[in-house]
């Protein structure tokens, strides 16, 4: 089938729109999703096309947005709630963790919770300390809710459709810096990428770089630089932090025996910590070097550009980490 070269925000918009056309139970709710066309323009034109019943502007009420999505999902609808940025999801932490993720289990499977919470994530352009979080690992800590974060427009479409069609709650984070970046996206309205399936974004044999979201771009850039020096990197994009595609990571590691984890988020109790723990627990016999982590620095992000960038990962930091273990 045909493909189009479109930015990630358009790929997400296509996924959402196609699912709303396919299933009457799917609707969107959140701050500014309607008349404003969505803060990130993912729901552009939806209010005109679908009307107020299915495109529901909400007050600034994160607890109620997520909690009402949980209730609506329990009762049989398939809400796609938008939390404008993941920074505001902390306000809805209880609704996400104590309700979305747990109600099915604690009532012994009497109902399902087919809901998606979309949230923009990542640092950007001097947004400062409270608006610069990439906290996926915190939310992926708890059983009962899936968490996906796409790195390309095609993944964004296929993963969001999978999230909407799944019967479990999904927190779906979208990297703000990737919204405008283009890529080839299949037109197929049934282009669905399975939940929990990672992807090899670049094949290689010397080092495995495990990453997701924005980290994929830095890792691919680093792999390109390192290739010129004769070092071959395999870039594993896990796509989903929960469920995590450990078999894919292990398969790559068995081949390379070395691993660098690249994450946009903080280093303490992190994605990198989990990958390193899993590898030492299950792949110890294949390990030829310590696992390295490239993360943001363990500080809140400041305003001034010079020191903001200093605190963040980039391709050069990935290159340096790979060289340390090669």
């Amino acid at each position: 089938m045909a493909e189009k070269n479109i930015p990630m925000r358009e790929a997400l918009r296509a996924a959402l729109r196609e699912e709303m056309l396919r299933d009457e139970r799917v609707f969107v709710m959140g701050e500014e999703v309607g008349a404003w066309d969505g803060t990130h323009k993912v729901t552009r034109g939806f209010l005109d096309e679908f009307g107020e019943r299915r495109v529901r502007d909400t007050p600034i009420s994160e607890m109620a947005i997520v909690g009402a999505a949980v209730g609506a999902a329990m009762a049989g609808l398939r809400p796609v709630a938008e939390i404008m940025t993941i920074n505001f999801a902390f306000l809805a932490f209880d609704a996400l963790i104590n309700h979305a993720a747990k109600v099915r289990y604690m009532f012994d499977g009497q109902f399902k919770v087919p809901m998606v919470v979309r949230a923009a994530t990542g640092w950007g352009n001097q947004a400062t300390a409270t608006h610069s979080h990439t906290p996926e690992p915190i939310f992926a800590h708890f059983p009962g809710m899936y968490l996906g974060c796409p790195s390309t427009p095609a993944d964004a479409k296929g993963m969001l459709k999978a999230a909407i069609r799944d019967d479990n709650p999904v927190l779906f984070t979208e990297v703000i810096a990737l919204y405008p970046k283009p890529g080839l996206v299949p037109d197929d309205p049934d282009f669905v990428l399975p939940i929990g399936k990672g992807d090899i974004k670049r094949a290689g044999k010397d080092v495995t770089i495990v990453t997701y979201g924005r980290g994929v771009e830095w890792s691919l850039d680093a792999a390109e630089i390192l290739a010129r020096e004769g070092i071959s990197c395999e870039v594993v994009d896990v796509r989903w932090l929960r469920p995590l595609d450990l078999p894919l990571i292990f398969e790559s590691f068995k081949k390379t025996n070395r691993c660098v984890v690249v994450e946009e988020s903080l280093p303490f109790y992190s994605f990198g910590s989990e990958i390193a723990a899993q590898l030492q627990e299950h792949m110890f016999d294949y390990m030829d070097a310590p696992i390295k982590r490239v993360s943001a620095m363990d500080v809140p992000l400041p305003y001034a550009k010079e020191i903001e960038l200093m605190a963040l990962p980039d391709a050069h930091k990935v290159v340096a980490a790979v060289k340390e273990i090669i």
Partner: peptide, 23 residues
């Protein structure tokens, strides 16, 4: 639909179930 143990936590769930009826 149940008893909930985080004070106030079930209130938006009630709104969501009511939204289903409205929808």
């Amino acid at each position: 639909w149940g008893g909930y143990a985080i004070v106030g936590g079930h209130l938006p769930l009630a709104a969501g179930i009511a939204l289903k009826s409205k929808y």
